[in-house]
């Protein structure tokens, strides 16, 4: 598995915000069909890293390889053209519009081109329903408003949309953080099903150790802008994971620190 060419590889990635170094020489390889958990404390640089991968920010230094080819993302459009689909925390959905209208927003199927192109609503409804079902959610009515869907269903909608429009790399930034227990489970199931498709790589950012252990195949730990550890699931023990997630500090140290307060 690991000797395959990674879909995305970053080498020596640096990002400076003026005098502040947010990322300092990060290396990372993402394989198709794997869930790669990106873990680290608040401010470690996770969001900065994925913003670079999705074309929102430009790196100060370093290279991104897509299928082994060095690539420059000048805008989010470049990144999504290269097959990188990002599901942001706010999901980029409009609540008052229907599921279908959201699914196809900006990429409507139309007869005739230009803004006055007429939407093929029947076909769009059918595709939306089928694509959502593929990753496990049977929406009864594609004309229902997104505002009436649960948080987990919305997450699934955003994921289904990214995949349908050609994402080979799916970036999920804390997809479970705002959800209740049951809906967190729903999202984890969705991640599993997407992984099961086999050809899609998933980058999962989470602060939840249990979630990462449930679905991740590989881990990368960031701390203060640098990679402090990486490894496949079977190479790491949960104690290591917990320690690395906290930025390398031992839990005992944390307890000591707490005691000092």
């Amino acid at each position: 598995m690991t000797d395959k060419e990674p879909v995305i590889r970053v080498e020596n990635l640096c990002k400076k915000f003026g005098p502040f170094t947010a990322l300092n020489g990060v290396n990372l390889a993402i394989q198709a069909g794997e869930v790669h958990a990106l873990l680290g404390d608040n401010g470690a640089g996770k969001s900065t890293l994925i913003k670079i991968l999705s074309g929102v920010l430009q790196p100060t230094d370093g290279t991104i390889f897509v299928d082994g080819v060095p690539t420059n993302f000048r805008s989010p459009r470049d990144a999504s053209a290269a097959g990188i689909g990002t599901v942001y925390q706010d999901l980029a959905l409009s609540q008052l519009s229907s599921v279908t209208r959201n699914f196809f927003l900006g990429r409507e199927i139309t007869i005739g081109s230009g803004p006055f192109g007429v939407m093929k609503i029947k076909e769009m409804d059918r595709i939306t329903h089928d694509e959502m079902q593929k990753i496990g959610i049977d929406i009864s009515d594609p004309t229902q408003s997104v505002g009436t869907m649960s948080g987990g269903q919305r997450q699934t909608l955003a994921i289904a949309r990214a995949i349908y429009f050609g994402a080979r790399v799916l970036i999920l930034d804390e997809p479970t953080s705002a959800l209740g227990q049951k809906q967190q489970m729903e999202v984890l199931k969705t991640i599993r099903r997407v992984r099961g498709l086999g050809n899609i790589a998933i980058i999962l950012i989470t602060h939840n150790e249990i979630h990462s252990q449930l679905v991740a195949d590989r881990y990368t730990f960031l701390s203060l802008g640098e990679v402090i550890g990486t490894g496949a699931k079977d190479e790491l023990e949960s104690r290591d994971i917990r320690r690395l997630m906290a930025g390398g500090a031992d839990i005992a140290d944390l307890a000591e620190e707490l005691a000092k307060v």
Partner: peptide
């Protein structure tokens, strides 16, 4: 039309 979808989306989010 596509434009109609854009009008709703622009006002919504």
């Amino acid at each position: 039309t596509k434009l109609g979808n854009w009008i709703y989306a622009t006002g919504d989010n």
